[in-house]
């Protein structure tokens, strides 16, 4: 790999990918491979699906790099591809998860940890250690709506600003704040109010 091209910024590399520059594509894949995989996994919670989906995102990048106009950061544009693929994937597989729920296999996404826990009004914080609370908290994130979950993951995990999250999700900043507010309101019951 050309050392010089490895120093280029994402936007310049993307422009080269639009001209089918393989070396530029390789650099972008190496830079975003782990991030794309982790983001996909945070949605899908399945390593194989996350790997396939992140690879599909790179294939889309290769095919549509010419449509990146440089108005936003490359990372925002690329994350939008990944998130849209994740949301589509979840939408397509919704019927299967519904079947699991009907069969009783998917009724308690929080797993054995919560099987014998009382209802939240009894303050689960008193019964669980801090580490367990954090585990429960991330499990509870999986129960959020796709948009709320996306907004929260992009903020907490990817540390995107509100405007960047809005660009990724294709909505206004005010809508992003509403998603975050509702997500936090749902998760609030799992932490102690200090």
């Amino acid at each position: 790999m050309d050392d010089a091209i490895a120093e280029w910024n994402d936007e310049a590399l993307c422009e080269r990918v639009a001209r089918k520059d393989e070396a530029a594509f390789d650099v972008l894949v190496e830079r975003y491979r782990q991030r794309a995989y982790r983001l996909a996994w945070s949605f899908l919670r399945n390593a194989d699906d996350a790997r396939d989906l992140s690879q599909e995102a790179f294939l889309r990048l290769y095919q549509t790099a010419g449509s990146f106009r440089g108005r936003a950061r490359f990372s925002t544009w690329f994350y939008r591809i990944v998130v849209n693929l994740c949301l589509d994937h979840r939408r397509k597989h919704r019927w299967w998860r519904t079947m699991l729920m009907w069969s009783g296999e998917g009724n308690d996404p929080r797993g054995a940890l919560l099987e014998r826990q009382p209802a939240p009004r009894v303050d689960p914080v008193d019964r669980l250690g801090r580490e367990q609370i954090m585990t429960v908290l991330w499990k509870a994130v999986e129960d959020l709506s796709p948009q709320q979950r996306a907004a929260l993951v992009l903020q907490v995990q990817e540390e995107l600003s509100t405007s960047e999250i809005a660009a990724v999700l294709g909505c206004s900043e005010a809508t992003v704040r509403v998603h975050l507010h509702r997500a936090l309101a749902s998760l609030r019951k799992w932490v102690r109010d200090d």
């Binding site: 945070s42 954090m134 908290l137 907490v156 995990q157 998760l187 799992w190 932490v191 200090d194």
Partner: peptide, 11 residues
């Protein structure tokens, strides 16, 4: 608290 907790334990 929720945000701090999530950030401290990203799976």
């Amino acid at each position: 608290n929720v945000l701090d907790g999530l950030a401290a334990s990203i799976p």
